[in-house]
Simulated assay, not measured.
Amino acid sequence: MLIRRWKILNREYSSKESLISVDNLMSRTFQEMKNHPLEIPMISDQEFQLLSAFVHQRLGILWESHKKDLAYTRLYRRVQNLKMKNFQEYYQYLVSEEGHLEVQVMINAVTTTKTSFFREKAQFDFLEQEFFPKLRKNYPSGKKRKVRIWSAACSTGEEAYTLALLASEGLAMDRMLEWDLKILASDINTKVLSAALLGQYPLEKIEMIPQALLKKYFHSRHSPKGLLYETKENLKSLLKFRPVNLLAESYPINARFDLIFCRNILIYFDTKTQEKVLKHLLQYLHDDGYLFLGGSEVLRELKGIQRFKNNIYQKIHESIIPTAHERY
């Protein structure tokens, strides 16, 4: 089953190289680091300017001057493993033709991946107590209703799986067949997508999941790293994973969504990039659909959307977008 999921994901990946190739490259270079690591000098101002401009261009992430130590911490091991002398050499490798795979490895190293199940619980309470009950009430039985949800920066999958189990419960999918539910989970970081595909979490990661839901949607197993909880197929089958760069001019998605979660990512963008990404996301949101942002993300005035509550925003009029097809 996992191999089949990898094949699906690899077909969707726009690069000529697969996620597996990137992960293998990363593993190989770590193995190559033996007993004589190179001492890498602290990143210079010039090197930092080059790398921060590259990161901003590719990811939209704004590295201000005080982020120099962060850049060094996250990248020095890559420079070391590649047996390079300094960050100038690493930058030249990134922008060269032979370094095209390294760009994804760099992205995996510099992106922040913090997440958890039921993070910012008030937003999930809204789904459980208001959104799904209203959907059940207002939609006539006997007709299959499509429900589409997008976790646009899913990291290691906790958010996406939380959405899957809440939707399963909220739509009573174990008793009713009229719901056509699909959840897209995307991230630019292929390393965390690999972990999300596996859907395996240690005990400390699943503590926020109620015991009844844990028993219904997860099974436990022992591993060399200790006890792991793995999502069951009744949950995994609802999700599709795909690498997506929110900064891209177009997304490899031809669908519109009832809910879009894009939380705790906009804070890393400058104002111009935030507006670009938000306008792009709204093109994929149904009228009256909901956009969920992180608790510390304040949405400036944006045409076509209004604040609902708990950093949840609702689309209020039609956007001009191409006809959506069910393919993502």
Rank of each mutant, 00 (worst) to 15 (best):
A71D: 04
A71W: 01
A71G: 09
Y72T: 06
Y72D: 08
Y72F: 12
T73C: 09
T73R: 10
R74K: 15
R74P: 00
R74L: 14
R74S: 10
L75V: 07
L75H: 01
L75R: 01
Y76F: 11
Y76H: 12
R77V: 03
R77Q: 13
R77K: 14
R77M: 09
R77L: 08
R78Q: 12
R78M: 05
R78N: 13
R78P: 04
R78K: 13
V79W: 05
V79Y: 05
V79N: 06
V79I: 15
V79T: 11
Q80E: 15
Q80M: 15
N81W: 01
N81M: 10
L82Y: 03
L82F: 01
L82N: 13
L82K: 13
L82R: 12
L82D: 11
K83P: 00
M84H: 11
M84K: 11
K85C: 09
K85P: 00
K85H: 05
K85F: 00
N86Q: 04
N86W: 03
N86F: 01
N86E: 10
F87I: 02
F87K: 04
F87R: 05
F87G: 15
F87H: 05
Q88A: 14
Q88I: 02
Q88C: 11
Q88L: 11
E89H: 07
E89C: 09
E89L: 01
Y90N: 09
Y90F: 05
Y90W: 04
Y91Q: 12
Y91G: 05
Y91N: 04
Q92I: 03
Y93L: 15
Y93F: 15
Y93N: 13
Y93K: 14
L94N: 04
V95Q: 12
V95F: 11
V95K: 13
S96V: 11
S96N: 03
S96Q: 06
S96Y: 04
E97Y: 03
E98H: 10
E98N: 05
G99M: 08
G99D: 14
G99P: 14
G99H: 07
G99E: 14
H100Q: 10
L101I: 08
L101Y: 07
V103T: 05
V103A: 05
Q104K: 04
Q104S: 08
V105F: 14
V105P: 12
M106W: 09
M106G: 03
M106L: 11
I107G: 00
I107C: 08
I107F: 14
I107Y: 02
N108Q: 10
N108L: 13
N108P: 02
A109W: 01
A109I: 04
V110L: 14
V110F: 06
T111G: 02
T111C: 08
T111W: 03
T112R: 10
T112E: 02
